[in-house]
């Protein structure tokens, strides 16, 4: 049954706190950086509003373009790796988990809710010069002395995969869990092999989960700044680090705002893509 229709005093009462808080402390700040992104930064950190597209064009400067391209490559590889590792696990929990399903999915959620900073820090401990990774490599005889593992694009990708894997598994599981097992049986009764059944039936039906998971991994990876800060050093700078630098060190708020708006626009594009492909029902449901 559907809810009551139209606006009423009661509804206005229920919605006014969230309108106030998210309006003033989420939407207005976003509009503010949108305005700033078209402004001009003064020499001493002030900003003059106007319509200056220069801040957006600045990303085509080779110096910054390299960072933007690197960001997309790392975020893209991370999304792909999370999908490759996350799908089999989500499949396992949904179809083979039986009565341990809830515990298995809770075990994915615990790291999801655990401090991001500490999870990135854990890899600093593992990958640093005398860390466990180097010890293991030497023990196995693969290297004779500590090699440089931390402060590389590889370290950043690994740290990101670790941080974002649960973001991929949870929507995949949600999509697979709804799956009607009889469809698989029907396909196999009609003579499809297991491999065929998976690619022609199971996988296409799990597409909403694949798309949602990819968005949930790609968007925050592209805006990540803690992981490249801790694991990337000065040579693996990403867009997030650039934004942080513009706001806290360079004090070029106009350029920083333009970079932040580009990350927000990326999210908007991803959501529109999702709504077109999957529809809004999924959003309202879970």
């Amino acid at each position: 049954m559907r809810g009551r229709k139209g606006w009423s005093l009661g509804l206005a009462g229920l919605l006014s706190p969230v309108t106030f808080w998210l309006g003033l402390f989420f939407l207005v700040p976003l509009l503010l950086i949108l305005a700033y992104s078209f402004g001009t930064s003064g020499v001493y950190g002030g900003i003059t509003l106007g319509f200056n597209p220069g801040n957006y064009l600045k990303v085509f400067d080779p110096l910054y373009l390299e960072i933007v391209v690197r960001t997309f490559i790392i975020a893209g590889i991370n999304t792909l790796l999370c999908l490759l590792l996350g799908y089999p696990l989500a499949y396992f929990i949904a179809f083979k988990g039986r009565r341990w399903r809830n515990i298995l999915i809770l075990m994915v959620m615990v790291p999801f809710w655990t401090s991001f900073l500490i999870r990135a820090y854990a890899w600093v401990v593992i990958l640093n010069g005398n860390g466990i990774a180097n010890k293991t490599l030497q023990f196995l005889g693969l290297t004779s002395e500590p090699i440089n593992l931390i402060y590389t694009p590889g370290a950043v990708t690994l740290g990101m995969m670790y941080a974002y894997l649960p973001f991929m598994i949870l929507p995949l599981y949600a999509a697979l869990e709804k799956f009607d097992g009889r469809l698989k049986e029907a396909a196999q009764d009609l003579g499809a092999s297991k491999w065929h059944t998976f690619w022609r039936v199971t996988f296409p039906l799990s597409m909403p989960g694949v798309i949602a998971g990819s968005i949930l991994v790609f968007i925050p990876s592209a805006g990540e700044f803690v992981i490249p800060n801790l694991l990337g050093g000065s040579r693996t700078v990403m867009m997030g680090n650039l934004v942080q630098q513009q706001f806290l060190q360079a004090r070029d708020w106009a350029f920083g705002s333009a970079l932040a708006m580009m990350l927000a626009a990326l999210l908007l594009a991803a959501i529109l893509f999702y709504v077109r492909r999957v529809g809004t029902d999924e959003l309202e449901g879970a």
């Binding site: 934004v243 942080q244 959003l283």
Partner: peptide, 28 residues
């Protein structure tokens, strides 16, 4: 419990706030 005009906008804002990159929320 309610169907009203602007509900899609309200819904989208709620979800946008959960997936907006944290750095964008932070600097804004």
């Amino acid at each position: 419990r309610h169907e009203f005009r602007g509900k899609t906008f309200a819904d989208s804002s709620i979800y946008a706030a959960t997936v907006m990159p944290e750095i964008v929320v932070g600097v804004s």
